[in-house]
């Protein structure tokens, strides 16, 4: 049996995404956010995580996906970075999935533009694909200079 990897999965616009479990600090339900005026558009706001102030990124915007339906409460996938923790806002949190490394493949042709740069590939699951998120790229591409999704 080939080597396996574990991914924390979550859903966005019907797609299943995964982040390596080692990068995930915690996942939690919707947290009230303080918006930050003048921040890059992908920054939805700041959340209070037991006294730690964490920046929340709207992953839909970051991946150039359509906006959340009105009234939807996003969940938080908090990832560790060099500069502290960052929360990725997602539709729903999924299970931890164990995948065989040899089932990794190139991202599908249908994936274009911004999303393609942030998704290095996918693992084949039962009836769908687990799209792998390049966490570092997702976060490093945000800055006051860069601003818009799809930069960097």
């Amino acid at each position: 049996m080939s080597a396996t990897k574990q991914f924390c999965s979550f859903f966005l616009e019907g797609h299943t995404f995964g982040v390596e479990v080692t990068r995930v600090q915690e996942v939690l339900r919707f947290q009230p956010m303080t918006p930050v005026p003048l921040a890059p558009e992908v920054v939805e706001g700041l959340i209070n995580l037991r006294g730690q102030i964490v920046t929340a990124i709207d992953l839909r915007r970051r991946l150039a996906l359509p906006p959340r339906p009105k009234g939807a409460s996003p969940m938080n996938v908090v990832v560790r970075t060099d500069d502290g923790s960052v929360s990725l806002l997602v539709d729903e949190i999924g299970d931890v999935m164990e995948v065989a490394e040899d089932t990794f493949e190139e991202p599908p042709e249908t994936l274009k533009g911004a999303a393609r740069e942030l998704i290095p590939g996918a693992f084949k699951l039962d009836r769908r694909l687990l799209l792998v998120l390049d966490t570092d790229r997702v976060i490093s591409g945000i800055g006051v200079a860069a601003g818009t999704p799809g930069d960097g």
């Binding site: 009230p32 956010m33 303080t34 930050v36 003048l38 921040a39 890059p40 920054v43 706001g45 700041l46 959340i47 209070n48 006294g51 102030i53 964490v54 920046t55 990124i57 500069d83 502290g84 960052v86 976060i139 945000i142 800055g143 006051v144 200079a145």
Partner: peptide, 21 residues
């Protein structure tokens, strides 16, 4: 955080007594 450090009008953030940022 790094993504927000460059905004000149903000010096930082804090958690208020009611838990809000």
């Amino acid at each position: 955080g790094k993504q927000l450090k460059g905004i000149p009008v903000f010096a930082g953030a804090t958690v208020m007594g009611d838990g809000k940022v």
